[in-house]
Design a protein around this nucleic acid. Structure first.
Lengths: 238, 238
DNA sequence: CGGACAGTTGAGGCCTATCAATGGTGGTGG
DNA sequence: CCACCACCATTGATAGGCCTCAACTGTCCG
């Protein structure tokens, strides 16, 4: 509406287009926490272990050192939504209010730095740079959330899966490499994308048959990145 | 956040349940901006007027004084996603990075306070309280985004519409009153909920036939709040 | 009055969920 | 070492929810 999309130079238009197409922004692997590190406890969790409980008191937040974490919400009737996957160098749990609205679980064995939220806020009060980077991080997180909103609200299954694969290559810093090892199982992918496992499988198969990717269990090789980026338009004819 | 709200009493667990059911949290109508107000410019926009362009440079952010604003993303093929509706007392545009990933348009005639992002950041540097409230606001925004994510990814059309109506009564501070005047048209609702206008209509009709609500154009009266809260389970049998 | 527009309702089709069965892999214990 | 089991992934058949296309109504406004 009101498409006076005036201007904003041609470039930015394209950039947004890319985002809308599912290429989500990647958080900078900044050491946001520099001066906080001495206060960190190192904690480890096994695969599928619960790190924070949904509804649990938000006493700590975490920085992923190695491995992969998922945040999850489970509704009473068993429906499950994965909020996000968290990769090394990224934070989670710091934006909670009093309680964690999403739980967190280890997708793979993980090593984490754990910070007391009190220390966290204290540092933000003392250190403007830290507070500023925190606000920047906020922007990144909110933006990522909006990308996912578009994906869930307006993308077909095929597009969701294709954009997911592209997102993962970015998130895992493997843009230049064709092959990625997905840490999460199909169920996690499905609950992240708002689909069923079966549909995720079928779309992967479809992309494989098209010669766009190769799949063997958790390893996905992107054979044709351009086609993957364009994927999904096949079925959505407007 | 971290505001010694550490009273994770039994209630908070329930609260999460309610959130998962689609009752989103309402941002506090705090005057977050106290000391910034002198720097604000007052701006007005007519219905459907563009306030910030999608992809536009993020020079300003806004506080809604009166009226309602929607944030929108438009993809190249015309698909549209409404990111959020912004009501009086709430901010938008402050979390942008370099450019606005969503545009903003006036749903109704609106009056806004406009702030330069630079002033905004400057104040955050000087005023810990402001910075802290900003972080708190972040948490609220991220949480609301997650609620919508669950809605878009895991809720049926009926549930989405029902939870939307409940969200609006909360957002507009009309929880106690049965009748609300929705400021937005069906198209906006549909693009917010990831549905089509027709489906939104049909679900409203269904709720009306059930005796749960009464509808006349933009005015919706909630006849049976309990039934509305439970709505949608009808079609999702697990 | 007529035209534009938002909202509503109906018919039909597609996309995705559901139900079900099979194949493959890893772990465990005989 | 291999049988067995549990679990994940894949594929097929079918059903159903939501979208698409279309027609109609009511309202506003020139």
């Amino acid at each position: 509406m009101l498409t006076t999309l005036q201007a904003t130079d041609p470039g930015s238009r394209l950039a947004i287009g890319a985002v809308a197409a599912g290429v989500t922004q990647m958080p900078p692997k900044a050491d946001v926490l520099g001066s906080l590190k001495p206060l960190a406890a190192i904690v480890r969790f096994d695969r599928d272990e619960e790190i924070v409980a949904q509804g649990g008191k938000a006493a700590y937040c975490y920085l992923v050192v190695s491995g992969c974490v998922r945040t999850v919400r489970l509704s009473e009737d068993g429906r499950r939504q994965v909020g996000e996957f968290v990769f090394p160098g990224e934070l989670f749990g710091w934006e909670a209010l009093d309680a964690h609205d999403f739980g967190a679980e280890a997708v793979t064995p993980v090593t984490l730095h754990r910070f007391a939220r009190l220390d966290f806020d204290g540092l933000a009060d003392r250190d403007h740079g830290f507070a500023r980077r925190l606000r920047e991080l906020t922007g990144i997180q909110v933006r990522a959330g909006r990308d996912r909103m578009f994906r869930l609200g307006r993308m077909s299954a095929c597009e969701r899966v294709a954009s997911f694969l592209l997102e993962m290559t970015e998130r895992m810093n493997l843009v230049d490499r064709p092959s990625i090892e997905l840490p999460m199982c199909r169920t996690d992918m499905a609950d992240y994308l708002g689909l069923t496992i079966e549909t995720v499988c079928r779309e992967l198969t479809q992309l494989r048959r098209d010669g766009t990717i190769a799949v063997e269990r958790t390893k996905v090789t992107i054979l044709d990145r351009r086609a993957l980026a364009a994927a999904g338009c096949r079925r959505v004819i407007h």
